[in-house]
């Protein structure tokens, strides 16, 4: 479904942030991209989406090179849905209006049918569809963002840190919703995440980036079980270090 082939990318005249990345994601699987701050996770996702144009290599979706296809074209042709990192629902609009924003270019009949489907799938939103989005909790707002991206029935869903700023309980709720989308639709989902343990809990496969390169890739379950991986990239407990006397005592 998505194939990233030897992609190099960066901003302006700066150095390459991505230095020859290869990544694959198939339909019906969640692929998560992990790594420390500044490793290029978000740049890779923006490159896949089309916000950043690759300097070299290619991004393919459904076998076609889409490196130069503008973001709005991919969205309008139902190829891709994208949920940015920031809190991106419109507080002053109702839940229904927020969702409909994602479908404003679709014919009215199709738009209404899709809206009804979504309301059936997300009863928590259906019960609040006339309320302003400002009345929703953080988790509900994120699910509203997901619903807005899903209304156009994209074949690929890209999520930039969907759990950013959420409490552990809400985070769990959002990841459960992402897993449910995969199971129900067979969609190809690519996420970038800081909360590695939560993300690996629902992902099928993962790529761990370091300094713009893929350092580790594999099945999510295998990565979770690997102690070296946990220590190096997932913030696992460091090995116990022998205790030393204070500086003053040494002197």
């Amino acid at each position: 479904m998505i194939s990233v082939n030897n992609v190099r990318a960066g901003y302006g005249d700066g150095p390459d942030i991505l230095q020859g990345i290869n990544l694959n994601a198939a339909g019906g699987e969640i692929v998560t991209i992990l790594g420390p701050n500044g490793c290029g996770k978000s740049t890779l996702l923006k490159c896949i989406a089309g916000f950043v144009r690759p300097r070299g290599g290619a991004v393919e979706m459904e076998g076609c090179d889409v490196s130069a296809v503008p973001v709005h074209d991919k969205i309008r042709h139902h190829l891709m849905g994208f949920v940015p990192q920031t809190d991106n629902v419109f507080s002053t609009l109702s839940v229904a209006d927020n969702i409909m924003l994602g479908a404003r270019y679709m014919p009215a009949a199709e738009r209404n049918a899709r809206y009804a489907e979504l309301m059936a799938q997300y009863p928590s939103l259906a019960s609040k569809q006339e309320r302003k989005a400002s009345a929703l909790s953080g988790g509900e707002r994120q699910i509203l963002s997901l619903a807005r991206a899903l209304i156009s029935k994209p074949r690929v869903l890209l999520l930039d840190e969907p759990s950013a700023g959420l409490s552990p309980m809400m985070m769990h709720e959002v990841f459960a919703a992402i897993a449910e989308i995969r199971d129900r639709t067979g969609m190809c989902i690519v996420t970038v995440e800081q909360n590695a343990f939560e993300a690996l809990g629902v992902a099928d496969r993962a790529y761990v980036l370091s300094l713009g390169k893929v350092a580790i890739e594999g099945r999510a379950a295998d990565l979770l079980a690997d102690p070296a991986m946990r220590h190096l990239y997932l913030g696992g407990k460091p090995p116990v270090v022998e205790s030393r006397p204070p500086f003053a005592a040494v002197n």
């Binding site: 709005h72 969205i75 940015p84 920031t86």
Partner: peptide, 13 residues
């Protein structure tokens, strides 16, 4: 939020 606008299918250019 230009990125959000593009992700909603708006042609920014």
């Amino acid at each position: 939020e230009p990125q959000l606008a593009a992700s909603l299918g708006y042609d920014l250019a």
